[in-house]
Computed example of a mutant assay.
Amino acid sequence: MSRASRFLHDNSLTLVFGTAFLLTLVGQAASGLAEVNNQLVAADLQPVSVADYLTGSDFAVDVTENWQSEYLQFFLYIFGTVWLLQRGSPESKSLDQAGPESDRDQKVGRHATADSPGWARVGGLRRALYSRSLGAVMALFFVGSWFSQSVTGVSAFNAERLRGLQTPFSWSDYVFSVDFWNRTLQNWQSELLAVASMAILSVYLRQRGSPESKPVGSAHTSTGVEG
């Protein structure tokens, strides 16, 4: 197998979903531009160009409100599954492993192996930070995209109000407005439903060959077992 083929094989999950993300982003931009221009034409206003739409608040708020809900899902799931359990689910740890687990289980400090990351072998602040780095980064992505949603959202909201000759909102007014929380909670409830559904349905249903499923023949009560 050539180096290029090996790279594609070893990174196919990221590459496929990354490419799909870019394609859907392009599709969202195209359909969003068409929708905005249809609304502008219907209001006897000048349509916007592709460049103006991509750098404008309408496109940005739609993107960031989706991103913040996704990162909220991962952030809550990563931290929640440290302590929360679901009997029979491969999405849960074993019922006797709630909590951060021992150094031996986590292969840190003197229990680290030769190929363990460097910060897993050391102690102190570096290990503490690295031990929580995945959840922390997801939290930062969530907070950053949520803040971006609020900034782009107030801009898009005020543009619509100005077209109707209404007084624009300040950022703080918008953050407590019905529009902002309607957008936010619509996304949050769908993500939380997806997490809850995956946790409970994976107890009883199977997908052969997937690490998100238990082996097909595993008992319904088997917990923390992946296929």
Rank of each mutant, 00 (worst) to 15 (best):
P100D: 14
P100A: 13
P100E: 14
S102A: 11
D103S: 09
Q106S: 14
Q106V: 09
K107V: 12
K107L: 08
V108W: 02
G109F: 05
G109L: 05
R110H: 15
R110Q: 08
A112K: 09
A112F: 01
T113W: 04
D115W: 14
D115I: 13
S116R: 05
W119E: 08
W119F: 12
W119K: 11
A120H: 09
R121V: 03
V122W: 06
G123D: 12
G124M: 06
L125A: 10
L125P: 06
L125H: 12
L125I: 13
L125V: 05
L125K: 04
R127P: 07
R127D: 06
A128H: 06
A128Y: 08
Y130F: 05
Y130G: 05
S131W: 04
R132C: 06
S133F: 15
G135P: 02
G135C: 01
A136Q: 05
A139T: 04
F141Y: 13
G144M: 00
S145D: 03
W146P: 01
F147R: 00
S148P: 02
S148R: 00
S148H: 02
Q149M: 03
Q149R: 11
V151E: 01
V151S: 08
T152W: 00
V154H: 00
S155Q: 02
S155I: 01
A156S: 03
A156N: 06
E160H: 03
E160I: 05
E160P: 01
R161A: 01
L162A: 12
L162V: 08
L162K: 07
R163F: 06
R163S: 03
G164L: 12
L165E: 15
Q166K: 15
F169S: 12
W171H: 09
W171N: 07
W171Q: 06
V175E: 00
V175I: 09
F176H: 11
S177V: 04
S177Y: 05
V178N: 10
V178D: 10
V178M: 07
D179C: 14
D179Q: 08
F180D: 02
F180K: 02
W181E: 07
W181L: 15
N182K: 11
N182D: 12
N182A: 12
L185P: 02
L185F: 10
L185V: 11
L185A: 09
W188F: 14
W188N: 14
Q189R: 15
S190I: 15
S190G: 08
S190K: 12
E191S: 13
E191H: 10
E191D: 09
L192A: 08
L192E: 03
L193E: 05
L193V: 11
V195M: 15
V195I: 13
M198H: 15
I200N: 09
I200E: 06
I200M: 07
L201Y: 12
L201R: 14
L205P: 06
Q207K: 10
Q207E: 04
R208P: 08
R208F: 02
R208S: 08
G209R: 03
S210P: 07
S210F: 10
P211Q: 08
P211H: 07
E212S: 09
S213W: 02
S213F: 09
K214T: 00
K214C: 03
P215V: 01
P215T: 08
P215H: 03
G217M: 04
